[in-house]
Nucleic acid binder design. Structure first.
Length: 507
RNA sequence: GGUCCCAUCGUCUAGGGGUUAGGACACAUGGUUUUCAUCCAUGAAACAGGGGUUCGAUUCCCCUUGGGACUACCA
């Protein structure tokens, strides 16, 4: 039976995939994999005007980077294709005709502009504009106009098809729809619009295409964003009109702005400087490229772990879970109902945990690509990596950290020099430099012993002495273990650096 | 305006008729380290308000308030 479990992610390629969409995809993926079912990617490109070719690629590439691979998709068709709605136009036509024939839908001829005017007028008067049973006969449509005239009008191909909501004649017509996360929801059918299901360009709207495809593709669970909850009743009515069994529905809580109120928008990322896309996005209309999690150095595994926990948790105190562990632990009934604010700090924390688990080889490749480390043998490279690994939030930070060590200091901490530098201190360092030069094969441990001893003899605080020496070698008074740095750089380099720094200070 | 959804520390959340309301991030303090980071320990920090139901409510119900979504020939 579990073979029959089928879930889909059905994005609209009008813009880049953001983390909200990614989370929807992830949850669908997780449930399908947990029940050993199938995960389908369907491209909902029924809006010809807003279609963006780059967006579809962005969605595909993002999912790929995150390791969420569909079992069926436009690229990998299964038995239920095509998987792009623009290629399914004729299928929808057939089902729209069925609804018209059964009296569940009708042709409507009023121009969009005219209806908009009416809507505005109603709003002005504080009224609610609905196009449904209570006023549909007042508009131009195949219910209000005689048959011959209707035929003529439809021949012009200048019509839309509207779904005819049922009207019981009672003042209220309550039905119950079910959401797996929220439970039973009561809706008054009398308030439902006669929604357009077929546009004048012949393309279906989301509502129709979505329902038809979910049925045809044998989708068992519809997991989507909360913004779809208000149209759930309509979708249920469509299933009823066709006489189809409904899938299970779950509407995910929204991801909200980190500060203030409102749902997270694509602009927030630019405004606050945090990523909202998995991978970079460059729109033709905009010159600048927006960096994604990938470009900012996040691990895809960390991203997945992070977004999975916005709105879900396993019920125990484990937080670091691999994709396989998420599959194992995931369940629909532990999804949260309320919206969650997006907190990038937590994402950084997740990333840090994943960066630590990265093998040294990964860092070695980063270093090899960006800086010249040919003069270092692999043992030394490994030492650098081990030294710096636990200090990193992002794996690419190792470049900055290692540059601080490998490159001669450019700027010296002036504040420290002005405050703490003394003649005695100066002399002790000169003395140390000579000692290293004379014993150029000496081990860092011995250098440490010698230096600490000298500090003691000259009544210089160890802390100050260490900071001073560090300043001579890397220009800063804080950083990783100094004597490991000495070991990595080698005594002759240390000699050079100390001399140079002393010259600068004493100039 | 109408319809629907939601409400526990600053943030993500656990819990659920009787709990010292638990954890994580962030924050603060202390310890470790020569320093920073790490690591360890500790601390501060929450049941939106008002009514019910009940012996007892943060938990169940109602109202208020607040937040959100939808209200397109967009999805």
């Amino acid at each position: 039976m579990s073979d029959n479990i089928r879930l889909r992610f059905a994005p609209s390629p009008t813009g880049p995939l953001h983390i909200g969409g990614l989370r929807t995809a992830l949850y669908n993926y997780l449930i399908s994999k947990k029940s050993k079912g199938k995960f389908i990617l369907r491209i909902e490109d029924t809006d010809l005007k807003r279609y963006n070719k780059k967006a579809e690629k962005h969605i595909l590439d993002s999912l790929k980077w995150c390791g969420i691979s569909p079992d069926e998709s436009p690229e990998k068709p299964g038995n239920y294709g095509p998987y792009r709605q623009s290629e399914r136009k004729n299928i929808y036509k057939k089902f729209i005709a069925i609804l018209i024939k059964s009296g569940n839908a009708y042709f409507a001829f009023d121009k969009k502009e005219k209806l908009e005017e009416k809507r505005k007028k109603c709003e002005k008067n504080g009224e609610t504009f609905i196009y449904n049973w209570h006023n549909r006969l007042k508009f131009n449509n195949s219910l209000s106009i005689r048959n011959e005239k209707t035929k003529k009008l439809t021949q012009n191909n200048n019509y839309v098809v509207r779904f005819k909501t049922v009207h019981s004649g009672k003042s209220k017509n309550m039905i119950t729809v079910n959401d797996e996360i929220r439970g039973k929801i009561q809706v008054d059918l009398n308030n439902l619009d006669d929604k357009i299901i077929c546009k004048s360009d012949g393309m279906p709207t989301y509502h129709l295409a979505n329902v038809v495809d979910d049925y045809l593709m044998k989708i068992t669970h519809v997991i989507r964003g909360e913004e779809w909850l208000p149209s759930l009743a309509l979708h249920c009515q469509l299933y009823n009109a066709f006489g189809w069994e409904k899938p299970k529905f779950a509407h995910l809580p929204l991801i909200l702005k980190p500060t203030g109120t409102g749902k997270l928008s694509k602009r927030d990322g630019e405004k606050y400087g945090f990523p909202v896309y998995p991978i970079k996005w460059k729109d033709e209309s905009k010159k600048s490229e927006i960096k994604g999690f990938k470009e900012l150095g996040y691990e895809s595994k960390a991203l997945i772990n992070f977004i999975c926990f916005i709105g879900w948790n396993p019920g125990n105190e484990n937080e670091i879970l691999s994709l396989n562990e998420l599959i194992e632990n995931f369940s629909i009934n532990r999804i949260i109902k309320s919206g969650a604010k997006y907190d990038i700090e937590k994402a950084k924390w997740f990333n840090q945990s994943y960066v630590r688990k990265l093998p040294n080889k990964t860092f070695k490749i980063i270093l090899e690509n960006k800086i010249n480390i040919s003069q270092l043998n692999s043992e030394r490279i490994n030492k650098i990596i081990e030294l710096l690994k636990e200090r990193l939030t992002f794996k690419n930070d190792i470049l900055i950290e290692s540059n601080n060590i490998l490159e001669e200091p450019k700027n010296l901490d002036k504040n420290f020099i002005n405050k703490e530098w003394s003649k005695d201190l100066n002399n002790v360092i000169i003395e140390l430099n000579r000692y290293i030069k004379e014993n150029h094969l000496i081990k860092p441990e011995k250098i440490k012993d010698y230096y600490l001893n000298q500090l003691k003899n000259n009544n210089i605080k160890i802390g100050i002495g260490m900071q001073a020496l560090r300043l001579c070698i890397i220009g800063k008074i804080s950083g990783p273990d100094l004597f490991i740095i000495i070991e990595i750089l080698g005594n002759s380099k240390i000699n050079k650096r100390i001399s140079k720094t002393l010259n600068k200070i004493n100039d």
